[in-house]
Design a binder for these strands. Structure first.
Lengths: 137, 137
DNA sequence: TAATTAAAGACAACAAGAGTCTTTAATATC
DNA sequence: GATATTAAAGACTCTTGTTGTCTTTAATTA
């Protein structure tokens, strides 16, 4: 029971792209180097993010990846969902409707999900800025 | 990212044992039949619960499993921890102290954990009783 | 002593995660 | 139009974890 490395890489990459000056596409080569990953592997993760509508891709020279234009200030949950999918963390093995164990587990899961939906990547950018400002003082 | 079947089986078994009249040990045979599992497989799960102190076991004739006497009204989290262990759901792949991604993920995880710690198996028993009472009306 | 039952350990089958390599398709520049 | 560049897709491998099974050992009761 653990989030995959892919989710980890996806979150880091998203943050990097959010910091990139607008309209500036970044190639997978550069993104991979930063996290010490092979470009082909990261590419598969980026394709998932693209299909989820979080980033945009363009092939060819001057191509690469950038934040999707009509992206809506994505939350942590949006990124996680793009990589891990949306399945429940717990499905009761005894199939009768209204299993109370399942109900309890779902409620706990909801608590985590709610937090991840409320937290946006932009919140982190802001936190970093504030941290830097505090250090300069 | 999913809870294992073993956790599922463990929770069901715990609930069954809580309903058992006191001091009455139940063999793995009977517990396995209920969930349509092989006894040897369930046995491995039960050994984990035993080592975690949630249940007690006795070999030999009249042996079997029952709730641990000095068990402290176990929570969902206690059972999950016994099976899945205590590792974090998320560890940042870029190792610098104070990773804000990790911090956010940990906080979300805490929200789920808190709910699972607060919910006791006995709460479920009570809920079932109330449900039955409501139906009899 | 014999029957019963849990514990432990070796083993196998399968699935998922993590990652590589190669081919194809799209785009920009000359 | 040719060439270089870059993402997408698919086949493949390697490792790890889950889900079991089977067999042997140890403890307990009658």
């Amino acid at each position: 029971m653990k989030y995959s490395n892919a989710t980890n890489y996806a979150l880091h990459t998203m943050l990097h792209l959010m910091r990139e000056p607008n309209e500036n596409a970044v190639g997978v080569q550069e993104l991979a180097e930063m996290q010490k990953l092979s470009p082909t592997y990261l590419s598969k993760i980026l394709t998932k993010l693209t299909k989820a509508g979080l980033i945009e891709s363009a092939p060819g020279a001057k191509g690469g990846y950038k934040l999707a234009r009509n992206q809506n200030d994505p939350s942590f949950y949006d990124v996680i969902k793009a990589i891990e999918g949306e399945a429940n963390l717990f499905d009761c093995t005894i199939h009768h409707e209204g299993c109370l164990i399942e109900k309890t587990m779902r409620q706990a899961e909801e608590n985590m999900k709610r937090e991840l939906q409320g937290k946006r990547l932009s919140d982190l950018i802001k936190e970093v800025e504030q941290h830097k400002k505090a250090q300069r003082r």
